[in-house]
Amino acid sequence: MKVLIRGAGVAGLTLAHELATRGAEVIVLEKREEIAGNASWQAGGMLAPWCERESAEEAVQTLGRGAADWWEEALPNQVSRNGTLVVAPARDVGELDRFGRRTSGFSQFGAGEIAALEPALAGRFGRGLFFAGEAHLDPRQALLALRDKLLGIGVRIDFGRCAASGFADIEVDCVGIADRRSELRGVRGEMLMLRTGDISLARPMRLLHPRVPIYVVPRSDNLFMVGATMIECDAAGPITARSTMELLGAAYALHPAFGEAELVETGVGVRPAFADNLPRVERDGRNIRINGFYRHGFLLAPAMARQAADIILGNRAAKEFALEPHR
């Protein structure tokens, strides 16, 4: 079985891995000259199916549960399984109750437990929710490691190309927002990278706020990724002053040390989403499309790659994978 995949974002590379390890011959075409720069590159990399349930449908939780295992198996040592800690500023602690009512899989933590978990935050938050089963990875390291592994197991990746014909039995589009179909819309996300050696965190933090909820994900080299806005708009231009202020203000509320951090990068990605914000695997003859990951690329790409690989390799019928919204 020969498969051609368009797009070397998280959707394309996870599918390439799934197919190659099951014995298919795979070529990936990427129109960019390198991995960097797509929406996946700007991702938070949180594998947080329980937290995401706060605003996502049940399918996101169900499909996302196996993500950390998939990534760990594919890329040993890339996944940190330290859970997620959710906190709120003192005057917004009511947001914790709201968040808790809509989610499961957490423990209520008091000030002492928060300090034990994240010493840098000692004395700053009286209450929090700890989601012990969640994990995170660095999306950039993960994408590069996945590329290297794929090259090592014989997958061809051609950069700077998007057209090819005649090679494959099946062609799969994993091109994200570059797919201009009208059912897909863009949801702009903006992020910052801060660098400071003054504090360290072991796990993603979510700071709840009625207007500006943010997350801070620790990465190596004293880097912290702060994200992310959600704007119904497909413009990919630079981050706005307002979004920068909001993200920085929230990071500062999490810990004043971020006020002295270096702002080393700002980033903008456009998330591809269908109207229900759930991803789809669609088949039309020998053409398959995987798209609509919205804000759940790293979380849901493994499940969708498995589904698509099953279809491609003939294990199951495509119609079994129609995603029904659960409510």
Partner: peptide
């Protein structure tokens, strides 16, 4: 949670007027 749920909610409510924000929903792009 999603535009699809928004659309269903609008239908279920029977409302005939919806407000939209120019600043955030439509800026740029």
């Amino acid at each position: 949670p999603s535009p699809a749920i928004m659309a269903e909610a609008i239908k279920a409510s029977g409302t005939e007027i919806v407000t939209v924000s120019l600043r955030r929903e439509t800026s740029g792009g």
